[in-house]
Deep mutational scan, measured.
Amino acid sequence: AEKTGIVNVSSSLNAREGASTSSKVIGSLSGNTKVTIVGEEGAFYKIEYKGSHGYVAKEYIKDIKDE
């Protein structure tokens, strides 16, 4: 099942092309942005936001229960 997560940073969080800190940054998400978690790979979540996919470090995403 898809989960919703909240970007848990004070400034912004980089979204990357792949599940690695050396992957190209494809965008950034500001704190408290809601994202859909579609998968996980190592220390990263694969997320969907406004129709695009990217990878973000798990430690900066807070899971919330689907309402």
Rank of each mutant, 00 (worst) to 15 (best):
K24D: 06
E2N: 15
N14T: 12
G54K: 01
Y60M: 07
T4S: 10
S12I: 12
G31I: 08
K24I: 07
S30T: 13
S52Y: 11
S30Y: 10
G27R: 02
I6L: 08
G39T: 03
K50I: 05
D63N: 09
D63S: 09
E59Y: 07
S22I: 08
A57D: 11
T33F: 06
A57E: 15
K46I: 13
A15Q: 05
K58P: 00
K58M: 08
G18C: 15
T4R: 07
K50Q: 13
T36H: 10
E41Q: 08
K65T: 13
S30W: 09
H53P: 05
V9I: 10
L29V: 09
K3V: 08
V56R: 00
G5D: 02
A43N: 12
K65L: 10
V35G: 00
G31M: 11
S23L: 04
S22L: 10
T21H: 14
V56T: 00
N8E: 07
H53R: 04
Y60E: 06
I37R: 00
S22Q: 11
I61E: 01
N32W: 10
N32F: 11
A57I: 10
A19Y: 03
E59K: 12
I37L: 03
N8L: 09
T33H: 05
G5K: 02
F44G: 00
I26W: 02
K62Q: 09
S11R: 07
T36P: 01
Y60V: 05
Y49M: 06
S28C: 13
V9A: 10
V38H: 03
Y49T: 01
K46G: 00
A43D: 14
A1M: 13
I64K: 03
S11A: 10
G51H: 05
N32L: 08
A15H: 04
E40I: 06
I47T: 03
D63I: 15
V9F: 06
A57Y: 12
V38S: 03
S52I: 14
A43G: 12
V35M: 01
Y60N: 06
E67C: 13
S11C: 15
T36F: 11
G5I: 06
E67W: 12
E48C: 14
T4F: 13
Y60D: 08
V38R: 03
K24H: 07
I37S: 01
E2Q: 15
S12P: 08
N14S: 13
Y55N: 00
I6T: 08
F44C: 05
E2C: 15
Y49H: 03
T21Q: 11
N8M: 12
K58T: 03
A57C: 15
T4E: 06
V38D: 01
E48N: 10
Y55M: 00
K46M: 09
S10C: 15
I6N: 05
T4D: 03
K62D: 11
E41D: 10
G27F: 15
G5F: 08
L29Q: 01
T21I: 14
S12V: 12
S10D: 10
E67K: 14
V35Q: 00
S20R: 03
S22G: 10
E17Q: 08
L13M: 06
I37P: 01
A1I: 14
S10F: 09
Y49K: 00
I47Q: 01
G39W: 03
K58H: 02
I61C: 04
H53D: 04
S20H: 08
S30V: 13
A19E: 03
V7G: 03
L29S: 01
I26T: 03
G31D: 11
K62S: 14
Y45I: 03
T36D: 07
I6H: 06
Y55S: 00
G27H: 05
K50R: 10
L13W: 02
F44D: 01
K65E: 10
L13N: 02
T21M: 14
I47H: 01
E2I: 15
V38E: 03
K58F: 03
Y60C: 14
A19V: 07
I26K: 03
K62W: 09
E48R: 13
K3D: 02
V38N: 01
A1K: 14
S22Y: 08
G27M: 15
I37K: 00
G54W: 08
G54E: 01
S20L: 06
T33Y: 05
I64C: 11
S22W: 07
V35E: 01
G39S: 06
S52K: 12
K58Y: 02
K46L: 09
V9Y: 07
G54T: 05
V38P: 00
T36S: 08
N8Q: 09
Y60A: 09
T36L: 09
I64G: 06
Y49I: 08
V25K: 05
D66N: 12
I64N: 05
T33M: 10
D66P: 12
S28Q: 15
T4Q: 09
K50H: 11
A1S: 13
K34D: 02
I26M: 07
I6D: 02
V9N: 07
K24W: 04
K3Q: 07
T36N: 12
K24C: 10
N32R: 06
I64W: 08
E59N: 07
K34I: 13
K3I: 09
L29P: 01
Y45M: 02
V9S: 12
V25P: 05
E2Y: 15
S52N: 08
A15E: 03
G51F: 04
A43Q: 11
K3H: 08
S11E: 12
E2G: 15
E48W: 11
K3C: 13
K46N: 01
E40D: 06
S10L: 12
E67T: 13
V35P: 05
N32G: 15
V7T: 06
R16Y: 15
T33A: 08
K34V: 13
Y49E: 01
E59F: 07
S23Q: 03
S20M: 06
K34H: 08
S11N: 13
S30M: 14
K3P: 04
N8Y: 08
K65N: 10
E48Q: 10
S12A: 09
Y55C: 04
K50M: 13
K50N: 13
E41R: 05
G39D: 06
V38K: 04
L13F: 04
S12L: 10
S23F: 08
E17S: 07
T4H: 09
I6C: 13
S23R: 02
K34E: 08
I64D: 06
Y60P: 01
T4V: 11
Y49V: 04
I37M: 00
S23N: 04
V35D: 01
V9P: 07
F44H: 01
A15R: 02
I47M: 01
S22R: 06
E41M: 07
K24G: 06
N14G: 07
D66S: 13
T33W: 06
S23A: 11
I47Y: 02
G54M: 13
K46H: 05
I61Q: 00
S52C: 13
S30Q: 14
A57F: 10
R16M: 15
E59A: 10
I26G: 01
K34M: 12
E2H: 15
K46E: 05
E48A: 10
L13Q: 03
A1L: 14
I37C: 04
G51C: 07
A15D: 04
K46D: 03
G42M: 03
G18Q: 14
E41F: 07
S22D: 14
V35L: 03
I47S: 00
K65P: 09
G18M: 10
S22K: 11
A43L: 12
G31F: 11
V38L: 12
L29D: 02
F44N: 01
E67D: 13
Y45T: 01
V56E: 01
G31T: 11
G18F: 15
Y60Q: 06
G31R: 12
A15I: 15
T36I: 13
D63V: 15
Y45P: 02
G18S: 15
S20V: 05
E59R: 10
L29I: 13
S28L: 12
T36R: 12
K65C: 12
K46T: 02
S22M: 09
K3F: 09
S20I: 04
G42P: 01
I61K: 00
D63R: 09
V38Y: 06
A57P: 15
Y60T: 04
S10W: 08
N14L: 15
A15G: 04
K62V: 14
T21G: 08
G39A: 07
G27V: 08
L29Y: 02
A1N: 12
E41K: 07
A57G: 10
L13G: 04
A15F: 15
E59V: 11
S10V: 12
E67F: 12
G39Q: 03
E41G: 02
E2D: 09
K3T: 07
N32I: 06
G27Q: 03
Y45H: 02
G42W: 01
K46P: 01
K3R: 14
G42N: 06
E59Q: 10
A1V: 13
G18K: 13
I64A: 10
R16K: 06
T21A: 13
K50G: 13
G51L: 04
S23K: 02
K65Q: 13
G42V: 02
V9E: 06
S52V: 13
S10M: 11
Y60K: 07
Y49N: 01
T21V: 12
A19S: 08
T4K: 08
A19W: 04
V9R: 05
N8V: 12
S23Y: 06
S10H: 10
I64L: 09
G51P: 01
N32A: 08
E67I: 14
N8I: 11
R16N: 09
G51W: 04
G54I: 06
D66G: 10
I64Y: 09
E17R: 04
K46W: 05
V56N: 00
A1C: 15
E67H: 12
S52F: 12
K50P: 01
I37V: 05
I61R: 03
Y49L: 08
